[in-house]
């Protein structure tokens, strides 16, 4: 009995070790985004709170927390309040299977990748619920668009994950990383390059980010599904969106860029020079690279039109993934190269 309680407390501590830095990362990702986009547009970005704007996320969080929660008339109050909670819970829970380093994982389950896919798909319920419960036309239209877009790109994303499974021969995320050991050119980005590109584009669409942000589309439907949300309920949606961005980046680096493995493995001089760097440093660096890519794309590309989004998802990404699944499984049967030779 006493041992069970201790085990439970230990699990909770481990979860907090994952979630609290994640929350910090989300907070400072918002600042990084504003700063980077600012400099890309020849502005400075937020620089008033603290030294060079370092306190901005905390000030924003405090402000949102102290604002009134407005529940619109005729809105369904329970669903309205529940929607942000249902969005953030899977966004956080997905992190349970992410290996941060060799054996640094909360729950090393066999079906890790399946679990990750399941959790990222659950986010769409929160969005639909928010759009329906707000009783606002913009929210309703935004939720419809967002749901159709997310489920369309989920197919391409699922197929891309199947390609990784074929190459790695396991759905356990730690096995997937270990299968890629042997240096930069043994990572799956090279043999699965089309799937890597498809996964990344689908990841942008899944998180409703630019250039696929027409669920929010400020200039057409003001803010989409969360137009009626204020104060902390809006902040929770925001947290969930950014946590999802970091999760997609983490999954991309695990599946295609070798997770915590060093890029200099096997290189004559550099390999031994960087051997002391702990794996989590490489992992965080790879995540940061993908997050920068998110922000860079947002600053660069204009928004797609809705029919273009659907055409890209159904007519380009899905055929590409189906073809590459066949190619990858043929490569497994024929034991091609250093990647499929086991």
């Amino acid at each position: 009995m006493w041992n069970d309680v201790l085990a439970l407390i230990w699990i909770v501590i481990k979860i907090l070790i994952i979630v609290l830095p994640l929350m910090g990362a989300v907070a400072y990702l918002t600042l990084a985004e504003r700063k980077i986009i600012g400099y890309m547009q020849c502005r400075i970005g937020p620089n008033r709170v603290g030294i060079r704007g370092i306190g901005q996320p905390l000030a924003d969080g405090l402000k949102l927390f102290l604002k009134e929660i407005i529940v619109p008339s005729k809105a369904n109050a329970y669903l309205f309040i529940l929607a942000p909670v249902l969005t953030i819970a899977p966004a956080l829970a997905a992190w349970a299977v992410i290996p941060f380093n060799q054996d640094w994982v909360l729950s090393n389950i066999n079906a890790g990748l399946l679990y990750a896919l399941a959790m990222t798909s659950l986010g769409v319920y929160g969005i639909l619920m928010a759009g329906w419960a707000s009783n606002s036309k913009y929210a309703f239209l935004g939720a419809l668009r967002s749901a159709a877009q997310i489920i369309s790109y989920e197919i391409a994303m699922g197929f891309a994950l199947v390609g990784v499974l074929i190459a790695a021969n396991s759905a356990n995320l730690q096995d997937i990383v270990l299968r890629q050991s042997g240096g930069f050119f043994h990572w799956f980005w090279l043999p699965l390059l089309p799937l890597f590109v498809v996964y990344w584009i689908a990841g942008l669409a899944e998180t409703n980010r630019h250039p696929f942000d027409l669920a929010e589309g400020e200039s057409e439907i003001v803010a989409g599904f969360h137009v009626e949300y204020s104060g902390i309920t809006f902040a929770v949606f925001f947290l969930a969106e950014y946590a999802n961005m970091i999760f997609i980046s983490a999954l991309a680096s695990i599946m295609f860029l070798g997770g915590w493995l060093s890029p200099f493995e096997g290189v004559p001089l550099l390999g031994s020079l960087f051997a002391w760097v702990p794996g989590i440093v490489w992992f965080v660096t790879k995540i940061a690279f993908f997050l920068f890519l998110y922000i860079w794309i947002r600053a660069t590309l204009p928004r797609y039109r809705y029919d273009q989004v659907m055409r890209l998802g159904w007519k380009i990404l899905i055929p590409v993934t189906i073809v590459w699944i066949v190619v990858a499984s043929l490569a497994v049967e024929l034991h091609v190269g250093p990647w499929f030779n086991y």
Partner: peptide, 30 residues
Amino acid sequence: SYFPILIFILLGVAFGLVPVLASWIINPRK
């Protein structure tokens, strides 16, 4: 090994629910 996941999901719900409820209680609604 699935038990920590269950705890994580519950904590995830708590992470969403607690700030919303706290804000609901301390802020005025006019």
